[in-house]
Design a protein around this nucleic acid. Sequence first.
DNA 1: CGGCAATGGTTGCTTTTGTCAACTAATTTC
DNA 2: GAAATTAGTTGACAAAAGCAACCATTGCCG
Lengths: 308, 308
Amino acid sequence: MKQHIQAIRSFNRFYTRHLGLLNDRLLDSNYSLAEARILFEIGTRQPIRMSELSELLGIDKGYLSRVITGFVKSGVVLRRTSKDDKRSSNLSLTKKGEQKLASLQLQSDQQVAGFTSRLSREELESMVNSMNEISLMLDEGYDKKKLAAAVTYRDKLQPGDLGYMTYMHGKYYAQDEGYSMEFEGYVAKTFFEFVGRYDEKNDKVWLAEYQGEIVASIAILRRSQKEAQLRWFLVNPMFRGTGVGSRLFDMALSYCRSRFKSVYLMTADTQQQAIAMYKRAGFTLTSSVDTNQWGMRLKEERYDLIIS
Amino acid sequence: MKQHIQAIRSFNRFYTRHLGLLNDRLLDSNYSLAEARILFEIGTRQPIRMSELSELLGIDKGYLSRVITGFVKSGVVLRRTSKDDKRSSNLSLTKKGEQKLASLQLQSDQQVAGFTSRLSREELESMVNSMNEISLMLDEGYDKKKLAAAVTYRDKLQPGDLGYMTYMHGKYYAQDEGYSMEFEGYVAKTFFEFVGRYDEKNDKVWLAEYQGEIVASIAILRRSQKEAQLRWFLVNPMFRGTGVGSRLFDMALSYCRSRFKSVYLMTADTQQQAIAMYKRAGFTLTSSVDTNQWGMRLKEERYDLIIS
DNA sequence: CGGCAATGGTTGCTTTTGTCAACTAATTTC
DNA sequence: GAAATTAGTTGACAAAAGCAACCATTGCCG
């Protein structure tokens, strides 16, 4: 915790300096940082009221008023009294303002391009992902729902997916349950078998991704004409409680309903959270066997769901 | 490219605002942002010269001079003329300065803690990783060497490692060579077999990690009393050309030299970069078979190295 | 060695940036 | 329909920052 805070403060210092460098160069354009920010916001949100601007940028309304007056005088901004509320005025850019902004944007783009030119495509992508994550998490209204909203879903398997799923199983089961590494070998085996018999028409895998990385998985395998098996249901701890898991689960179940008469799954009795979800969906315990696997004593349980 | 730049600029705007919020609250302490930054730098780097400070923080030396004079007057900073160079002076904090800084730090810590309190441990960790990456890449002196310097190495297998290695094989071989998904299944199989016969005393795996994620791997498997096989040598594209690969390769080879009479490896003729490295180390081509695997026509080659 | 250029820092002067409070006009609330 | 609130303006002022001239010292080069 403590060291995380130090790391964050160190980043804040670093980025203060970095933004300082960016802004220094901006001064060539006859616009101050504050002016450029204001111009930019008017440009992207026009028409916008002054109070919104001042709120958005955290700038004093008195100061803002003067800057806007200057903009109006120099002909880059149009100020029109609002019809709904004669106290306030709507701000928008004039043709000239659009031009000024465009050249400012270009300059800014080039600057950023300059700072990132030494990065490879992979590095750049990775950095942009990092930036997106930080914005997301530090945003005022951030909560688990926002995180979940940044998740995308797909049901088409890509190279690397099975490996990543193996990784997740190995890592999280060891982390959460203390399973030994044999478990990961076992999972690798199930995937290997799966690749051999994979039948796209019947077997389905759904994946949830965040920033290009898999954060949750589930699969349905056809076991007979009527019966399917639910497998590899796993959610990255960071995404538990976000609804990502239940969304995948729903996708899988609704596929089962359209296609099979029954579904079963194997799990360990320690998987309380998942089991609760299974039960809520109507699954019932149909067998329970004591085993001594993956370095643990546990009950291997089978749950079945008969589809009405 | 274009959209990456937009994303970066968007992040810059976001963080400008974020830092603005942080700094507003800082003003309670009677220190301006600039003063706080100066105090902080003196505190962490003392003794420090004014020219260094001005360079470090990007602050005008005239302005800095005045701020320092103020600090000296209020008794938080000590200014002593340097012995080596009578033009410059060494700055350090007085007892009082240390105290002021400590309380400033505390305040700053609490502020950051406030902004991150809603994040879970996993989220916080993920965000800090992101911040570290950004600092690294935007740092002035950044190059591949710096990236490589942030890489750590280990030879102890952890849960998840084999899965992650499978993932890397599946993803990168598909991306770089166009291999089909069967290849990943095959790799999964080799790992599964490996877990079954893994003998810590003879078989070794080395992994390179960056921000807690595996970015390169290599392994040596004992095949007989005298012979070993080199396997799973793979480097994340972002880390190619950084020396991470050759470092792993050296580790593996030096283990072989201490333990076996010969090493062999299997590869495809398309792996030009890796093959060049093998040859440089003294490996020679000993067999080459045309195959039709993983959706490709390619030569499966065997390279051997006799250890003198 | 001497002279000129460069460096480290100070100071005066200036502009930019920002704050605060008082004020007007319009709108909302009760 | 009076009181409170909101949107924006303005004047006065202070803080923050930049610029250039300047001094003292040091480094460099013929």
